[in-house]
């Protein structure tokens, strides 16, 4: 098998809104290698969010193919998609999306619960994921007892805990100040160096600049796709 993690061919996504047909994606073809660090950019309405939803297996394309880690996910339905989300994808959201009443540890354990991991192994793996993002001493804290940066690091730990094929981050610094953004981006950089495939969806050029490949979407189509090897180590 090739080292392609993501292989997308002629991906189309249409929505029917009342009498109108909205073409969010109009035939996108894209390949992402293992251990790439890709930023997907584009102005609002470019199809960036739709792309992110499809890449994250939250949505399925109207036409075209999407292969993730050797499986064709574009034809999958509900429960199969849930399984792929659980095993292959680690989400990091702009608004963190932690469960407010659960501790950091419990939040990180959540994907493992759905993966059917035993409680002992679950705890061990969650603790080590939290240690990996530098929160080994915060495992019993609830989200409201943590700073924005710490919350996002909990979310990153949660995304990593199932050892996903791709880490998919949607505007991960959108709710953070610049110093904290810097801290979070360093975490992504470090994970990438350790071999993790990272996909960032953002509209901020300076965030995208951290990636070693920038894909720009415009009007549902690929506008540009360039490597920036000089920034790869950022």
């Amino acid at each position: 098998m090739s080292d392609l993690v993501i292989q997308i061919r002629e991906l189309t996504r249409e929505y029917v809104m009342g009498a109108d047909r909205v073409h969010a994606l109009r035939g996108v073809t894209l390949q992402i290698q293992r251990n790439e660090y890709v930023a997907i950019m584009g102005p609002s309405g470019s199809g960036k969010s739709t792309m992110m939803n499809i890449l994250g297996c939250l949505d399925t394309p109207s036409a075209g193919e999407y292969w993730l880690n050797g499986q064709e996910v574009s034809r999958m339905v509900d429960d199969a998609l849930a399984r792929v989300r659980n095993r292959e994808i680690g989400f990091v959201f702009q608004t963190f999306n932690l469960l407010p009443r659960a501790t950091a540890l419990e939040n990180v354990e959540l994907p493992l619960i759905y993966a059917g991991v035993s409680s002992k192994a679950r705890r061990e793996r969650a603790v080590s994921a939290l240690q990996r993002v530098g929160l080994g001493d915060r495992i019993g804290h609830r989200p409201n007892e943590l700073s924005g940066g710490q919350r996002q690091r909990v979310a990153i730990a949660r995304a990593l805990v199932n050892r996903p094929s791709i880490l998919l981050a949607d505007e991960p610094t959108g709710n953070l100040d610049s110093a904290t953004s810097e801290e979070i981006m360093r975490v992504f950089g470090e994970l990438h160096r350790q071999g993790q495939t990272v996909i960032l969806v953002t509209h901020e050029a300076d965030i995208a600049a951290r990636a070693n490949r920038v894909v720009v979407l415009r009007d549902g189509q690929l506008a540009s796709d360039r490597l920036q090897p000089d920034r790869a180590a950022a």
Partner: peptide
């Protein structure tokens, strides 16, 4: 529920 689904919760979960 959205979070749980994103993290891999199936319908029956």
């Amino acid at each position: 529920i959205g979070i749980r689904k994103a993290l891999g919760a199936k319908r029956r979960d």
